[in-house]
Amino acid sequence: MTAENKTAEEGSETIITDDDADLQAEIVKLRAKNKELLAEKQKVKLKAQEAQDAADNAATAAAERNGDIETLKAAHATALKKLQDKLDAADSDLKTIRVDNELTRAYNENGRPELAEQFIAWAKGRVQYENGTATVDGSSLGDFVETYLSSAGGAHFRRVADNSGSGALGNSSTTAPLRLTKRPTTPAEWDYLDSLSTSERNAVCDAIGAPDLKE
């Protein structure tokens, strides 16, 4: 060890000083303290909620003893709203999970991975969710995605099947379907875009970042 309190491994250029070790130790302490403060914050929040609930319960009990009907009505309305808010939050979470998971599952079966985010964002805007059931134009999400990816507009999002093997059947063409990954520049690309239905064209325009080409 030198006068500068350095340690070095022979034959190596790496030098670790006591200052570095002290800094790492301080970082570990700070992380532990941060974790401790977060836990304490959660405890305080829980105690505050418990205190509020106790106060509400005490007010309700007093109102019941005194026959204060209006106070009881207000207390019951508050309790009902809390329950409804919890139910709404749970239903919203469930909707997100069901819709996102089903669209992702269905798309991943045949869709191009690099366009998954754009497709799912577009598809979610078409979803109707009612009584825990998600549909698009009356079809289940899985059926909708499968049907759309099989359409002309869906070809842009559809993953090209590997038909090059010796056992490939049902496809005598070696030409891959036309797809747009950027604004059209050739006559064939413009013809392809113009051949799509309005909804298909708009989906493709969103995917390639060309909203000005939407109908």
Rank of each mutant, 00 (worst) to 15 (best):
T96C: 11
A3E: 12
R105Q: 13
V44M: 14
E130K: 11
L103C: 01
V204N: 10
D206W: 08
G167T: 11
D85I: 10
H76F: 00
S199E: 15
A161P: 05
T135A: 15
E200W: 05
A32C: 05
A51R: 11
D137E: 15
E70K: 07
E13G: 07
T14R: 12
L38F: 12
Y148L: 06
A106M: 11
L196F: 06
A32N: 09
A77E: 04
E102C: 04
A106G: 10
D206P: 08
E26D: 09
H156S: 14
R105I: 11
G111T: 11
L169I: 14
D91N: 15
N57P: 03
A79W: 05
A61C: 02
Q128D: 15
A59D: 13
A210I: 08
T17K: 03
R183T: 00
L37A: 13
K45I: 14
L72F: 00
R179Y: 01
E117S: 13
R65S: 00
L141G: 06
T2H: 07
V160Y: 05
R158P: 07
D22F: 03
E109G: 08
K124F: 10
E40T: 00
L213R: 07
G209Q: 05
A116P: 08
T175C: 06
S150K: 01
D53T: 13
L30F: 02
N131H: 09
A59T: 14
